[in-house]
Simulated scan of single mutants.
Amino acid sequence: MPNGSLEKYLYSHNYFLDIMQRLSIMIDVACALEYLHHGCSPPVIQCDLKPINVLLDKDMVAHLRDFGILKLLGEDESDLYTKTLATLGYIAPDANLVPPTDNHLLKKLDCVASIMNVTLDCCAESPTSRTSMKDVVGMLQKI
């Protein structure tokens, strides 16, 4: 992909994504996950979603890669195949995500807060309590 991985944009001082670009990438990834969870038979769960596995094309549209670590679910959602070696560790967002001098500061802070609410909905301890990717896509598109 011409623009490399999302990792380059999140962890490098030479690249920058503003909040709207990040939201667009989140929507792209959520749409891809929605397709994998609800559009495939059997459903596919990508168990190693991380910035290096999100590739950006020439238009900064996000695409998923690395399905070596995945879970296939049957109709009763019992595991048919699982290989789980997920990567651990997160880093705080870049300090310039929402600069304090931004003219649209409050709107962008509301956007970040809404994204965090969606994130928390996806992190319920019980998988059955987590928000579905169909709902995540809808929530992100409304932000």
Rank of each mutant, 00 (worst) to 15 (best):
C123A: 11
G138L: 06
N117T: 14
L70Y: 04
V61T: 12
G39K: 14
L23Q: 08
H37I: 04
I45F: 05
L73H: 03
V61N: 02
S12N: 09
H104M: 12
L10Y: 07
G74L: 04
K50T: 01
L10D: 08
D28F: 02
L109F: 09
S126P: 09
Y35N: 06
Q21V: 03
L120H: 15
V61L: 00
D59Q: 05
N3D: 10
T131A: 07
G4S: 13
L49G: 03
K71C: 08
M133K: 07
M133S: 06
S5L: 09
P42D: 14
K108D: 10
L17F: 04
M26E: 07
D135T: 12
E75F: 02
Q21R: 14
L56V: 00
L6F: 07
S41D: 13
L6H: 07
S12Q: 14
L97E: 11
G68Y: 06
M26R: 00
L106E: 06
G138F: 03
E34P: 00
L36V: 01
Q21G: 08
I45V: 10
C40R: 14
L17H: 07
L88M: 10
D102A: 15
G39I: 02
T84P: 02
D110E: 10
P42Q: 07
L49T: 00
D18C: 13
H63G: 07
L64M: 06
L140P: 03
Y11F: 15
S5A: 10
M116L: 11
K58T: 02
L80E: 14
H13A: 12
P2Q: 15
F16M: 08
G4P: 09
S126C: 10
H38Y: 09
Y11W: 12
N53V: 01
T87C: 13
E7S: 12
L36G: 01
L56H: 01
S5I: 14
M1E: 13
G89W: 12
D121Y: 12
N53M: 00
G4F: 15
N14C: 08
L120Q: 12
K8D: 13
D135M: 08
L70V: 06
N117R: 15
C40V: 08
I45C: 06
I27F: 02
Y9A: 07
Q46C: 03
K134E: 10
S24H: 13
L49R: 00
K58D: 04
D48Q: 10
Y81P: 00
T128V: 11
V136K: 00
A62D: 02
P100E: 08
P127S: 15
T128K: 09
T119P: 05
D57Q: 01
A95K: 08
D94T: 09
P99C: 11
L36P: 03
V61E: 05
V136H: 00
Y9V: 06
N117E: 15
G89Q: 12
Q46H: 06
H104D: 09
C31Q: 10
M60T: 05
M60I: 05
Q141L: 05
P93L: 11
